[in-house]
Computed example of a mutant assay.
Amino acid sequence: MDIRELRTFIAVAKTGNITRAAEELRISQPALSRQIIKLENELGCKLLERGGHGISLTNAGHLLLNRARELSDLLDKTETELKTPDVASGEVSIACSETRATLAIARIAKRLSRTHPNIRFKFRSESSDDVTEYLSRGIVDFGIAVDPARTDDYHALKLPDTDRWGALVPADDDLAFIPLAPSLTSHVALIWSRSHRLSPAGQAFLDAAAAYLDEDREQALQ
């Protein structure tokens, strides 16, 4: 099993059609089919179900698709970093929980793009557990963590935003007159791995984030 076979499988899963996948990859349909059969033989399981309405994934196929995408993203990220090891260019990937703090991160990314146009940003919307998992695997550079996510194993930069949780009820409902408890307020932090070295692009983003937060604190004191 190699990365070419995995990317072939990703294309088939995305298009749901052998012919369209072959056209997208610019290889012949028989060659593509042989790669899929070889992959199934190597793994000892069936990955695709072929029917009259196209191709669907088996349970094993869904599992492989998730892992294949992670490996492909990680390889692309590694190749970019190796080609430009000392230049603030390339991709910065950020896994985000559902939080309003994402707006601040987007502003930082936009500001950095003006001074470093060769830096690209990739945002992934994930649960808090997936944010830390992707960081530990080195799939993403940064994560946005919302309490009560565990961040002990990561560097953390506290963001000024907090998330408040509540319930949407009619105005005349008894619950409408109950104030939110303090426990329903969550703090948010930008986190990154202690064990993975940041690329020049990642360091440039971190510096921009720190400068943005310093400005935000100064404005709050005025």
Rank of each mutant, 00 (worst) to 15 (best):
F121D: 01
A189H: 15
P170V: 07
R194T: 11
A149S: 09
S125Y: 13
H155Q: 08
A101L: 15
F121N: 00
V188Y: 03
A189D: 10
S186E: 01
I139W: 07
I178F: 04
W165Q: 00
D174P: 02
R100I: 13
K110E: 09
A171Q: 11
A104R: 05
I119P: 04
I119V: 03
S193P: 08
K122Y: 15
Q203T: 08
A167F: 00
D173Y: 02
A171G: 13
D173V: 04
D130T: 13
I139M: 06
A156P: 02
I139C: 06
A167D: 00
V188E: 09
Y134M: 15
D153R: 10
P200D: 08
S136M: 11
E133I: 15
R111G: 11
R137D: 06
K110R: 09
L112P: 01
L103D: 02
R120K: 05
V188T: 14
L159G: 00
S128A: 11
D130N: 12
P160D: 09
S183D: 06
S113N: 08
D173L: 02
F123D: 03
D130H: 14
Y154R: 10
F205Y: 14
S193V: 03
H187P: 01
F123S: 08
F205E: 10
Y154P: 05
E133Y: 06
I108L: 13
V140T: 09
L159Q: 05
R114I: 12
P160E: 13
L159H: 04
F205T: 12
T132K: 04
I108P: 12
A101V: 08
S195T: 12
Y154T: 06
R124I: 12
S186W: 00
E133V: 14
P160V: 07
A104Y: 04
R111W: 08
D173R: 01
T99E: 08
R197H: 03
D207S: 07
L157W: 07
K122R: 15
H116P: 00
S186H: 13
L180Q: 09
R120C: 02
W165M: 02
N118I: 12
Y134V: 10
A106Q: 15
K122F: 14
P117V: 13
S183M: 07
D141Y: 03
L157Y: 04
P160L: 12
A104L: 11
E126Y: 09
T99V: 15
W192S: 10
I144G: 00
V131Q: 02
I144M: 10
L180I: 13
F142H: 06
D163S: 10
A189M: 11
L112Q: 07
F123G: 04
D129E: 06
A189Q: 14
V140I: 15
D147W: 03
